[in-house]
Design a binder for these strands. Structure first.
Length: 465
RNA sequence: UCCCCGGUAGCUCAGUCGGUAGAGCAGGUGGCUGUUAACCACCUUGUCGGCGGUUCGAAUCCGUCCCGGGGAGCCA
């Protein structure tokens, strides 16, 4: 295959007069007298390269005139300064090879804007559009930036298992994993499913969190993070939920809640500024066509320290707000969306970290505070999207952990390994979870989470690939 | 899962009081032009989301299911 130059490189370096070859897909074609203008994109960058196809090309009449949006071609020629407005440089082609046609009668993408809803129905083709291509590039950059951030700080990535046999992780409904023939399920006495005949000899599920396993490695390597697919079988039909999504979960030994918050705030700011710096062109597209206030909102996050407020203080602020909320405010009740929005959007107008929630509304692994009523938890609330991070200092004291697990009716026999972490060389540690698609949503301004993942899986929908 | 709104041409949508459908864009043909959301003229396109019901007659009214949007719950 001919050695090609990527369009991003060409537009950056503008090697005028040089003979080169580009390969990509046609965004549009405009015919003129004696020549055609081809708008070529190869995915390396948002902008396309204008290719001039003169009618002197041997295949001009037979092929070039038949080209349409979506066709794939290879173009060889000389890069020249463009005499017309709209682009600095263009490729004066001397040879164009057509790889694949895209019959315009059936090719779903047109030379115009499509609704995200429609594009979702052609998920295998939508990355060829400007906006979804930009999302894909930003997603890739954010993923890389996460690794950069943690690797620079001496964190080790741990690949925690996708399949888990901890049958009660307490983070929602789980997808069962089985090799049993569902038409002939083996039954034990009493009619219960006989899992001893299943692949693992016991019930198994797709993971809803890698946190507990990450804790084990944090208590060996110090600072670790897991970053991978996570599954929830919740019947959640919203623009913020997926059945399969990616979650980042750092876990730090010898770390308390404050250190946890500091890292989370630093991370979020790093990710945002990294995208602004390294995907400026795509970010510009989002700010022009997806969300006009995007850059202002991102800048607002970068400029300010996050507000840090205890749950109890948040309740007091809500009580004296004078607002009438649909859900009543009372100490001990979890904050509702409307409450979180009031705090982050109305009262403070910037990200808010709410800490020290009542222990009754938080999971068993969160560390009990000295007041005996609250736990060392923290939720980061962003204006516009609500909770983006949930984290805590973990309960490292065996006795207290056992008490909370028993109160929550956690089957201890499945968690002996977790308790071992407290029996042997326990240390204070903390961590948090960041929904990867949610940070992509925030950074891009995309309204629906299904449009920031390549092939979204949601209740009733797992189309394609 | 709950509440509200929607599903009509390839796409985005209009369709009044129930009388079996339109526009723009796309596509096709021709013309024009260093064009860039190209332009001008003409032409084509429909199981009106599925199923059932009311009616002489249903895109329109009723029921139900599916899908999508907004909000809520759950959460990341």
């Amino acid at each position: 295959m001919e050695n090609r130059l990527r369009i991003k490189t060409i537009l950056m370096e503008k090697p005028l007069g040089r003979e080169l070859c580009v390969q990509g897909w046609l965004k549009s074609k405009r015919d003129s007298k004696g020549l055609s203008f081809l708008d070529l994109t190869d995915g390396s960058t948002l902008a396309g390269l204008q290719v001039i196809a003169p009618e002197s090309l041997p295949n001009y009449a037979t092929e070039i005139t038949r080209l349409s949006t979506g066709c794939s071609v290879s173009a060889r020629g000389t890069l020249v300064a463009s005499p017309a407005k709209g682009q600095e440089v263009e490729l004066q082609s001397s040879e164009i090879t057509v790889y694949g046609w895209a019959p315009p009668e059936t090719y779903p993408l047109q030379k115009k804007r499509h609704s995200f809803e429609f594009l979702r129905s052609i998920a295998h083709l939508r990355a060829r559009t400007n906006s979804l291509g930009a999302v894909a590039r930003v997603r890739s950059r954010l993923s890389w930036a996460i690794h950069l951030f943690f690797q620079q700080r001496g964190f080790f990535q741990v690949h925690t298992p996708i399949i888990t046999t901890s049958d009660c992780e307490g983070a929602g409904e789980m997808f069962a994993v089985t090799a049993l023939d569902l038409e002939k399920i083996p039954r034990a006495g009493g009619g219960a499913v006989d899992y001893s005949q299943d692949f693992f000899g016991r019930p198994a599920s797709l993971t809803v969190s890698g946190q507990l396993e990450a804790e084990a490695y944090a208590l060996a390597l110090g600072n670790v993070y897991t970053f991978g697919p996570t599954f929830r079988a919740e019947n959640s039909n919203t623009s913020r939920h997926l059945a399969e999504f990616w979650m980042l979960e750092p876990e730090m030994a010898f770390c308390d809640l404050e250190g946890d918050m500091n890292l989370a705030e630093e991370l979020l700011k790093f990710l945002i500024s990294d995208c602004l710096e390294n995907r400026a062109e795509d970010m510009d597209l989002f700010s022009r066509f997806v969300d006009k206030d995007l850059l202002k909102r991102l800048d607002n996050v970068l400029r300010h320290d996050f507000v840090r407020i205890s749950y109890s203080e948040a309740i007091r602020q809500l009580e004296k707000s004078g607002r009438s909320f649909t859900f009543p405010i009372a100490w001990g009740v979890d904050l509702q969306s409307e409450h979180e929005r009031y705090l982050a959007e109305t009262l403070f107008g910037r990200p808010v970290i709410v800490t020290d929630y009542p222990e009754t509304i938080k999971p068993f692994y969160m560390r009990l505070n000295d007041d005996g009523k609250t736990v060392a938890a923290m939720d980061i609330l962003f204006p516009g999207i609500g909770e983006i991070i949930g984290g805590s200092q973990r309960e490292e004291r065996l006795e207290q952990l056992l008490a909370r697990m028993e109160a929550a009716h956690i089957p201890l026999e499945n968690y002996q390994w977790y308790l071992d972490l407290r029996r042997y060389g326990t240390v204070p540690h903390a961590g948090f979870g960041l929904g990867f698609e949610r940070i992509i949503q925030f950074v891009t301004g995309m309204g629906n989470i299904r449009d920031v993942i390549a092939f979204p899986r949601t209740p009733g929908s797992a189309i394609l690939a």
